[in-house]
């Protein structure tokens, strides 16, 4: 065995952009695995865990959150420059997050309504994923991300192999765990058939339809989900177009496969 005290440990940095911190919490939530992790990596920057911040470069950077201010664009570019591997984590960093709902509305308008001095608020009119601005080595989906998948990605990069993150539908996980399909047996609308697996199909296991937290099934950035096909079925289940649009534009609003699946979005929601 290697003596971990003698060898230089790879450095890990965790960065926050526009987000709720839930994905970073997933890392803290690793409890049993945190100590072994600390034995394998030097956590160089992770403000949610420690105020200590070591200078870069960093072997692995985890980026949480979407880009929603001009500042964030510059900061993300600087982080890219000092990072060996950059992994975008969570729906915000991979598909704009809930805040990408602004992409379908007039930001100036609600900024003027919400803030007493709107001119103090510097914000972009779009919330975008990290990949819109810098090269991203891996996108880990989810709102929030799944702890086992996060550990798998970290482990894979530590030993220099490809992360084993399936790119199939949530339905695979439903069937593997023996959950009865809520769409077929209960008539409950479900986004599982076009949503990438990773959560373990939690919602259908509690008789809820999948909310699409892990975003559309896609491979190497190319869309692979037939969301239109599912929309047809949701309509047949008497789901109104407005509701379908709302279901698809929740956590991964900036993913075009989801946001553009209903061609004529309700008024005021077109881009």
């Amino acid at each position: 065995m290697t003596d971990t005290s003698a060898r230089r440990l790879p450095t890990l940095a965790v960065w926050k952009f526009t987000s709720c911190d839930g994905c970073q919490l997933t890392l803290l939530d690793c409890e049993d695995e945190l100590l072994p992790l600390a034995g394998q990596v030097r956590i160089a920057h992770f403000l949610e865990a420690s105020r200590e911040s070591l200078p870069g470069p960093y072997d692995v950077s985890l980026v949480e959150g979407s880009v929603s201010t001009p500042d964030e664009i510059d900061r993300l570019k600087r982080i890219r420059e000092v990072s060996g591997v950059l992994v975008a984590i969570g729906a915000c960093a991979t598909a704009g997050g809930i805040q990408a709902l602004r992409n379908f509305a007039d930001v100036d308008e609600f900024r003027s309504v919400v803030y007493a001095r709107p001119e103090y608020v510097q914000t972009l009119d779009r919330s975008t994923p990290a990949s819109a601005h810098v090269r991203v080595d891996f996108e880990l989906r989810g709102c929030p991300i799944d702890k086992r998948q996060l550990l798998e990605v970290l482990t894979a990069y530590l030993v220099g192999r490809k992360p084993n993150i399936p790119r199939h539908s949530v339905c695979f996980e439903c069937k593997a765990r023996g959950t009865t399909c809520v769409m077929v047996a209960h008539g409950t609308p479900c986004l599982g058939p076009v949503t990438q697996a990773g959560c373990g199909a939690i919602c259908p296991a509690y008789s809820r339809g999948c909310f699409g937290c892990f975003g559309p099934v896609a491979v190497d950035g190319a869309p692979a989900a037939n969301v239109t096909g599912l929309v047809e079925r949701l309509r047949a289940l008497r789901m109104a177009d407005d509701d379908i649009v709302r279901a698809l534009r929740t956590f991964n609003s900036a993913a075009p496969e989801f946001s553009d699946a209903v061609p004529d979005g309700p008024s005021g929601r077109t881009r």
Binding site: H168, S169, V194
Partner: peptide
């Protein structure tokens, strides 16, 4: 293919 959502069920 226009109808199948390739879910694998």
């Amino acid at each position: 293919a226009a109808r199948c959502v390739t879910c694998g069920n």
